[in-house]
Design a protein around this nucleic acid. Structure first.
Lengths: 331, 331
DNA sequence: TTGAAAGCGGTACCAC
DNA sequence: GTGGTACCGCTTTCAA
């Protein structure tokens, strides 16, 4: 941007006023057809493009959305990021991206969103402190939490109905004749993992079964180790439900290594339906989260608030139903 | 950003000039220690943060870097994106992210980088038209191509030395006693895939072997299908080298499905060393690309040019050596 | 060390 | 329909 062509350059070049040039690039403008064409042609010729940052200064609109994403190594999230990027772009918004290192977002990781005056923020799979949230609320910047739920925070939420999903998975496992069910939790202080656990537990209890649990921190290695522990116990489970697919894949590999047949000796159910789950080496039965829909809703929530600025809005929680994808990891 | 607190607000509040407030937040400033403290305190109190976009208007620096990324579903790239995001942030730059749908970048996908006055652009695993490149050159915005090489384009390049890698992999397979080697190409008109192929071919030729080839488009499914074709032929190969890991995993699964033992009947070598390659279900021998280093160099190239603006700079090509990671997929 | 004023590249309201 | 002008929030001379 060393020698940017400006609206004044065009104006001077055509001998008209800078305001007129500006109007040509302003949506609700009224400019004589002929003038418009001359300007457009000159812009093309000289390589002029309106500086959106300068525009934003006066319109108070940057058309940037901050996206903060943790757990980007989990194949579920690249898909999510791609979806957001695409949809937002179609609506004329840009993505200011931040990769979050830990599960708990630090202030510094979000502060640039404030500095760059994004109009809204999407946070996936991470925890926000209430202090951070309030700094956004003060600045009237809406936040939507994707795939994480937080009771007391003033943010919108779009979440799979994890409790119900867990419940249905429990029912399914029982119906398939399993007796000793285990659950491998993700990060145990995430709503996502908790709700899924509570769900299975509910259905198992209904039928008089109890639940064995372990923790896998949402990673392949974590799932692998947890599975090993579970399967090496005196009475190993005959079915393991994992809080996400990536752990389930690790758990399956551990089972294979220990000589368990899948699904002959033990069944596995995952969560997310990442592409890998369908790979023939795994063929994992899992819970499909309707990603497209969740992305769509998140964006609608965000944009609605952005474009109705001024109207106070209560935080909304959108719960979405998922569905079981049956493959070959359950007997 | 509805009611942003501005430097003038602080100034008025403290009864000093707005310029003084500004100076407190300007790196090379000289302000009385006492004044500075008062300003800082007031800023804290009223929640003031300098508007970096307004600042950029005058300093001509946005501290934003455009990152255009294709193939984000390939587990190699989330890692890359995470790395860029982290390192750039440490240097005080932000990432404006765009997900590219196809292998060939369209003008519209890059135009926002121009609109938002990013200071540099990183493009991974995608092809740029020379028209797009020249619009960036005109605006003095440096581009670095990550993992793709383009002879005639005025961009920097950071690339693994694919030719050499292919060569070494060929040598390795021969040394391990293989006789019929196959190569599964990615997208056949990418430099990356071509160079890797040329590399193996070179070493095989040196030893009097020829190379069977097929195409897998860099996807799991593509690798799966290509492998099936290869292995169903009258004289199936005894080793398959795939242009990336994800195809190799697909190829392995296909082999297993056809009843081939790995590595007993057939060996596999991948490329990238994505986390999945180490999973016990695969244990894929592969070529490790030193991602960290590549990211580092890309950023250095970019920043060097950004911060020396004005000095004309020739496009640089950085080639980096990788190394073989031996696991259990080669006999 | 500080304040006044110009200006970055735009938009929007005002007359004409 | 068009030009003049104020102003968005900030940095940067230039004087004081």
């Amino acid at each position: 941007m060393h020698k940017q062509v400006t609206a004044s350059d065009i104006a001077k070049y055509l001998g008209i006023s800078q305001s007129t040039v500006s109007r040509v690039f302003t949506p609700g403008a009224r400019v004589a057809k002929e003038t418009r064409e001359r300007v457009l042609r000159a812009a093309q010729e000289l390589g002029y493009r309106p500086n959106v940052l300068a525009r934003g200064l006066i319109t108070k609109r940057t058309r940037m959305i901050g996206v903060a994403m943790a757990d980007i190594q989990n194949p579920f999230y690249p898909e999510v990021l791609g979806g957001f990027s695409k949809k937002l772009r179609e609506l004329g918004y840009q993505v200011l991206f931040v990769n979050i290192e830990n599960d708990q977002i630090e202030d510094a990781e979000m502060s640039q969103f404030l500095d760059y005056s994004v109009e809204g923020v999407i946070v996936t799979s991470a925890l926000l402190s209430s202090k951070v949230v309030s700094s956004f609320v003060e600045n009237n910047i809406p936040i939507v939490l994707f795939n994480r739920y937080h009771q007391n925070l003033h943010c919108h939420t779009v979440c799979c109905d994890n409790m119900d999903a867990g419940d249905q998975i429990g029912e399914y496992l029982i119906q398939k004749g399993h007796k000793r069910m285990a659950y491998i939790a993700g990060n145990p202080n995430t709503s996502t993992s908790q709700d899924r656990e509570q769900g299975v537990r509910r259905s198992l209890n209904r039928h008089g079964y109890s639940l064995i649990t372990d923790i896998g921190h949402y990673t392949y290695e974590g799932g692998f180790e947890a599975s090993k522990r579970l399967l090496s116990s005196v009475e190993p489970p005959d079915a393991i439900f994992c809080a996400n697919d990536i752990m389930a894949l690790g758990a399956m590999d551990a089972a294979k290594e220990l000589g368990f047949g899948i699904p002959k000796d033990i069944s596995f159910v995952g969560f997310d339906d990442i592409p890998l789950a369908a790979w023939s080496g795994y063929s994992l039965t899992t819970w499909r989260q309707p990603v497209e829909q969740m992305i769509q809703w998140s964006i609608e929530l965000l944009i609605a608030e952005i474009e109705n600025k001024g109207v106070e809005r209560e935080p909304m929680a959108k719960w979405i139903q998922g569905s079981l994808v049956e493959r070959k990891s359950v007997r």
